[in-house]
Simulated scan of single mutants.
Amino acid sequence: MYPAHTDMWSSVDWKYWRIWKIIYIPYWQIYGESMLENFDENSNTPCTTIQSEWEYNPAMERCNEYDWILVVITALYMLMSNLLLVNLLIAVFSYRFERVQENSEKLWRYLRYEVIMDYRTRIPAPLNLVIRPIYIAYKCIRYIKNRIKKDKKQDENAASYNRELDKINTLQSLNAIKCVHNF
């Protein structure tokens, strides 16, 4: 647009740097805004071709010089940037898909393990009518035996506790008698 342009960094203010003009148009072109009207020679904005005016007056724009190659370069830039962005999007989606596949594989294996462990102790349908009551009776007998053992153990603990308590009481009584007779 501006051939033989040497001033990219204006000494007036950072807002008027020409680098912003270089970045501004391609940035919006990535999103699909072609801005072809900026490449036309007959623009409505006030501009000048005199170098001293646009260099020292930041409000005055430099008139661009129209060339058909600008439109071709713009089209190639938009094509390449959009292709790269689409490829990037595809790469992100494929990475996400692979992670989901990997996690679903792990989840499936875990749930399969749970089902196998759940059915490991189950009895097949026709046999469970005979074996299930026997199994329940076995569990009940085992529970009763454990309860009886627990009660016996508690009784033994209580008896040993009472014996220890009696010993302590007799020792205290003897010590009390000794104390009384020694005075």
Rank of each mutant, 00 (worst) to 15 (best):
M1S: 03
M1K: 03
H5P: 01
T6H: 13
T6K: 15
M8Q: 11
W9I: 12
W9N: 09
S11M: 06
D13P: 00
D13E: 08
K15H: 14
R18F: 09
I19D: 03
K21S: 07
I23V: 13
Y24Q: 11
I25S: 05
Y27G: 04
Q29H: 04
G32H: 08
E33Y: 15
E33I: 06
M35W: 07
L36H: 09
L36Q: 06
N38K: 14
F39R: 08
F39P: 00
D40S: 13
E41M: 08
N42D: 14
N42F: 13
T45R: 15
T45E: 15
P46Y: 15
I50M: 09
E53W: 14
N57W: 06
N57G: 01
E61K: 12
E61L: 13
R62M: 11
R62L: 05
C63L: 07
E65M: 11
W68C: 02
I69H: 07
L70D: 03
V71S: 07
V72M: 06
T74W: 04
T74Y: 05
A75F: 14
A75P: 00
L76C: 11
Y77L: 09
M80R: 12
S81H: 07
S81V: 15
S81N: 05
L83V: 08
L85D: 06
V86G: 01
N87D: 04
L88E: 07
L88R: 07
I90D: 01
V92F: 08
F93D: 02
F93K: 05
F97A: 09
E98H: 10
V100M: 11
Q101S: 14
Q101N: 12
N103M: 06
S104I: 01
R109C: 04
R109S: 09
R109A: 12
R109V: 00
Y110P: 00
L111F: 11
R112N: 14
V115H: 06
I116P: 00
I116E: 04
Y119D: 03
T121S: 10
T121P: 00
T121C: 03
N128L: 03
L129V: 03
L129I: 03
V130E: 03
V130D: 02
V130Q: 02
I131C: 02
I131E: 03
R132S: 12
Y135Q: 15
A137P: 01
A137E: 06
Y143P: 00
I144R: 03
R147T: 13
K149V: 04
K150F: 15
D151C: 07
K153A: 13
E156S: 09
E156N: 13
S160I: 02
Y161E: 09
Y161W: 10
N162M: 05
N162I: 03
R163L: 14
L165V: 01
L165A: 12
D166C: 05
K167W: 12
I168M: 13
I168H: 11
N169Y: 11
L174C: 03
L174D: 11
N175E: 09
N175S: 10
A176P: 00
I177H: 10
C179H: 10
V180C: 05
H181D: 02
N182L: 08
N182T: 05
